[in-house]
């Protein structure tokens, strides 16, 4: 397990921020299967936190414990600085929750459902029209939920989680059922809430985390493998690589790269080279000189950063 940040972290003004969700040694078994194993995570206040893991990693079990639907076998967790006991859902008043594959009362319309949620939380219903607009459901607000598509249900799930204007959003696979456009809309919406709310969302879609999150954790088989800020996690992937394609095979270029002090390592196959440099800026300046010296023409130049997927595969495979 790699922890790249502690539960107290420095914000950009130098002040200390507390973890809004914190778990310690959280464990849950289902018969002989360990679903969550000594999990300790810290979700900083105001962060957009991606909870990553392959299917069956224990993401939903963790979320169900955090929301009071499952009882941990052992361990401890607190939400907004308050220790939570199983069955006590009073703290949920300040939390928005979206379960995986949300299910609704089919006889209600989207608007009626949101109004009901607002009444449960003793909130006024005047923000509901905006929520319907923001989640793209305004035109189908009077349609019965039995006739909603999976994507619409997912959008309504996001809307109901926001109905109480919560400080914390806990979302289980919020964009899994959406088409690419719907996914973009919802991710943009979550990104727009960054800073004003703490958003904890589970997913197995790495690009979503890469796109909007500032913190992430990777779990597998119930165990925390990695946690930290996206920048810190990205740094684990190593240096970026420069990919070159030239017009003809050149032993001279290979020899020059071997001798260049700024080259950390490189691989090549025919006319294609993959170079890791000690200094990317210097490499950008030096490569044209080497190409001229080797008397070859550049066909393609590309610089690739290590992706979260590379890191994910690396940590999940140990």
């Amino acid at each position: 397990m790699v922890i790249l940040s502690s539960n107290l972290y420095m914000d950009k003004h130098g002040g200390k921020n507390m973890s809004i969700i914190k778990t310690e040694k959280l464990t849950k078994h289902f018969k002989n299967v360990v679903a969550v194993d000594n999990l300790g995570i810290n979700v900083p206040e105001g962060s957009l936190y991606g909870f990553l893991g392959p299917n069956g990693a224990g993401k939903t079990t963790t979320i169900k414990m955090l929301t009071g639907f499952l009882k941990p076998d052992s361990g401890y967790f607190e939400v907004m600085g308050q220790k939570v006991n199983f069955g006590d859902t009073s703290y949920m008043q300040n939390i928005g929750f979206l379960p995986e594959a949300p299910s609704y009362y089919k006889y209600m319309s989207g608007q009626e459902f949101l109004e009901m949620c607002a009444h449960f939380q003793k909130r006024k219903t005047n923000g509901i029209q905006d929520l319907l607009r923001n989640t793209g459901l305004y035109n189908v607000k009077n349609r019965k939920l039995g006739a909603y598509s999976r994507g619409m249900k997912q959008r309504l799930g996001i809307a109901q989680a926001l109905v109480n204007d919560p400080a914390v959003l806990i979302l289980d696979e919020p964009v899994s059922a959406l088409d690419p456009m719907g996914r973009k809309d919802i991710l943009d919406m979550l990104a727009s809430l960054k800073g004003s709310k703490t958003i904890f969302f589970s997913t197995h879609i790495l690009s979503d985390v890469e796109r909007i999150c500032d913190h992430a954790a990777i779990i597998n088989e119930g165990k925390l493998l990695l946690e930290g800020s996206i920048n810190d996690i990205s740094a684990l992937g190593g240096r970026s690589r420069i990919n070159l394609e030239i017009d003809t095979v050149s032993d001279v270029l290979t020899k020059l790269l071997n001798e260049a002090p700024w080259v950390q390592d490189f691989t090549f196959e025919g006319v294609q080279y993959s170079i890791a440099a000690n200094d990317d800026k210097l490499a950008g300046r030096e490569i044209p000189h080497l190409l001229t010296e080797a008397d070859v023409a550049l066909v393609k130049y590309e610089q690739s950063e290590p992706t979260l997927e590379d890191i994910f595969v690396k940590v999940v495979n140990g």
């Binding site: 929301t67 859902t89 949920m92 939390i95 609704y104 449960f120 109480n164």
Partner: peptide
């Protein structure tokens, strides 16, 4: 699963 959304809104069991 309809119970999850209701209880998550602070309705006690």
């Amino acid at each position: 699963g309809t119970i999850l959304l209701v209880l998550s809104k602070g309705v006690s069991r």
